[in-house]
Simulated scan of single mutants.
Amino acid sequence: MRDDIRVIIARYREDVSWATGLGCAHVVYDKGGDLGPEARPLPNIGREAHTYFTHIVNEYETLAPLNVFLQGDPFDHLDDRGRTSVETLRKSLEDVADRGMPFKGLAWFKLRCDRLGRPHDLRKPENEGRWPGWGRDIPVGELFERLFGVPMPDEILCRAPTGNFCVTGERIRTRPRAFYAYCLRLIEDDPRDERNTGHAFERLWQHIFNGNTAWNRDRYE
């Protein structure tokens, strides 16, 4: 059992029994209300970003050397051909830990987007009604500038576009706890993701954890 890796799972109603095969500690935050006493219950708001920021704020001083943030069923996002098994994921996480990588997105693809999150699929007719923010752009530029106080470039590269990634505790703590509490408040202000705040965070994880302390501020409000 690896004691330098901890997996944080944002679960709704997925079967997360696969987590026991990762060979490391894991914690499940449950928004489905049907997992049992071993899970940590949360209200079903704010997509996975709400779960991740809740964990970071609460565990800031005791974060693992490597923290792995995963959705309840991440495997479709890890390989475009569906070949990723629990064993493959376990080896990948161990490789990240052994190499001391401060951040790594786990999606099989990267994505370039502009300040409106384009390209995106939030206007696909087949997805209409799946979430309140359907049909709207993603406020990536607005959120970027609120978080960091600097203009967003015309285009950014998203290295964790599916919300599955690894980041060291040391890298997380290059930003103060108050920063993550501020992120959590922004998510809570858009609980049903009507403004696509949660979608915007999916495009910004690598910037949140880029270690650029020049972007830190004295106050977050």
Rank of each mutant, 00 (worst) to 15 (best):
P37E: 14
H77G: 07
P119V: 13
T51H: 05
L22M: 06
K104V: 12
T51E: 05
T51S: 02
R13H: 00
F75L: 12
L22E: 03
D137L: 01
E87A: 15
D79V: 13
Q71A: 00
F75M: 10
M152Q: 03
R159I: 06
E145I: 11
D76G: 13
A200I: 13
F144T: 12
A178F: 09
R2T: 09
I45A: 07
G82I: 12
T174V: 03
L42E: 10
R83M: 12
E170H: 11
N216A: 13
F209C: 14
V16Y: 04
G163V: 13
A10T: 11
Y180H: 12
W108C: 02
D137K: 01
C183S: 06
K110I: 13
R99C: 02
D76Q: 09
H26Y: 15
G129I: 05
T51V: 15
L186W: 05
P132L: 08
E142V: 09
R40F: 15
N67I: 01
E87N: 07
H120T: 03
E59V: 09
V96P: 14
P191L: 01
P65D: 14
R99T: 04
V28F: 06
T162S: 10
D121P: 00
E128P: 01
L70T: 04
G211Y: 05
G72M: 02
R2G: 03
G82E: 13
C24I: 07
I56F: 10
H207S: 07
V28E: 07
V68K: 00
P74G: 06
R99H: 15
G32Y: 06
D34N: 04
E94W: 01
